[in-house]
Design a protein around this nucleic acid. Sequence first.
RNA 1: GGCCCUAUCGUCUAACGGUUAGGACAUCGGCUUUUCAAGCCGGUAAUUCGGGUUCGAUUCCCGGUAGGGUCACCA
Length: 481
Amino acid sequence: MDTNSNKKIVTRFAPSPTGFMHVGNLRTALFTYLLAKKNDGTFILRIEDTDKEREVSGATEHILKVLKWVGISWDEGPDIGGPNAPYTQSERLNIYKQYAEKLIEKGLAYPDPYTEEEVETLRKKAESEKRPFLYREYRPETFGIWDGKKPLRYKVPEVKVFRWHDLVFGDLSAGPEALDDFILIKSDGYPTYNFCHIVDDIEMGITHVVRGQEYISSIPKYLSLYESLEVTPPFYICMPHIMGKNGIKKLGKRDGAKDVLDYEKEGYLPAAMVNYLALLGWHPSDDKELFSMDELKKVFDVNRVQKSGAQWNDEKLDWMNKEYIKLLDKETLQNKIFEQLPEELKKEKLVPIIAERISKFSDIKTMLENKELDFFYKKPEYQKEKLLFKDTTIEKTIINLSTALESFEKFGKDDYTKEKIKIALMEIADHEKSRGEVLHPVRFALSGLDKSPDPFILAEILGKNETISRLNEAIRLLKTQ
RNA sequence: GGCCCUAUCGUCUAACGGUUAGGACAUCGGCUUUUCAAGCCGGUAAUUCGGGUUCGAUUCCCGGUAGGGUCACCA
């Protein structure tokens, strides 16, 4: 965005602590962060807690935790302070009051003479007459003195159509209906978002405001306020929505949007989440798909953010996560997998066969439920028919298993590796019409599973003695009537 | 309903008037060790419709259609 300003870029992420953070919030935070970092700018975290009704205790901590999890760090914020402290709106009430006084002095703010019920009645009336309700049409002729008990309203000085430029959406406009005498300060003394975010953005020197597309129709209010305050507005960047599974509605808490920390619990890696989110609504100029946060800081470009909404896609996130699991170093991978395993399965040899079968770490739970790993510490139980490959006879299978058994017995300790086991078994298998005649009964004798890793790795994991024991067991079973 | 925004494979998207419309996920087929997973190779699959502008429109303009957003003492 170096093109638009030679000033240092300052962006902010300003969530309200009204519940958990979902992926839509997180993507906005990410893009806001990347915009700042791409340009060596400042990224500020501000908590917008002016709705005391909806405030949820612990929500702020939750937000910090989510941001830390994915590696978004802020230069100024409620926990670390900074030159524009405090960073929590409920601690900045006197600042908003000063700005409110300024507007009152200019005759651009006045106490609302109506009760809430009266306004509601007017609103309903307009609705039944199928015309938009505009408070300014009922604006009192003369303004009373504001005692702080009544809501303070903004007086729109000039009703007009606003046009502005958005760095993602381009040239935007809104009809005059978008402009109304909105409330600046509520009767409980707290400012509304519409008012205080502008005060804070001015005070904190925010140069680029990133927020969801749903704010587009509110922007004329802000532009009018900036005019009244005689301040140049920041650059606007609206983010398209993330749509739910069916692609029909914007993803929201009500539509089953998940808490970001649930993804952590399910064993998604933060790097995968960041990468997936970055590609949802943004795309680099080439076909590269895998980006670390550091790479994103270099290549991210708001000009390439999509205008249309993007549907959330769990499959692609899973694929992405698997890509990042593959990149994990051996030790981290093992630790992550061991976290999900009971003591008897915390074995190094199992790590590779588990790793290539999961796309997220919670998949290990499913593997355990399906008893896919039981073969490792207990002898499988199965019906002897299961050992037969297609229409191979019992007699023939006994011979094949015995031949395999003999070859296992010849192994010395040092050459008992899956590669050498493979060579030995394949040599036997190649004598048969189908390799399955040998490989299937061996694999099944070792695992007892319809679906399992290949017989070579199984034999290596189990060790020579156990392998021989299980093959003997299978042969004995086949010989029984 | 008023106002506003959007529109390329099923999904995420590339192509800033000229491409055999590209990539990724998913899907299908093949190979790799019988199964599963992974890997490799390959296939199916898209410019919402109608008008313009232009030698030429996915691309620019207008309209229809469809979808979304917004109209609070919530943010």
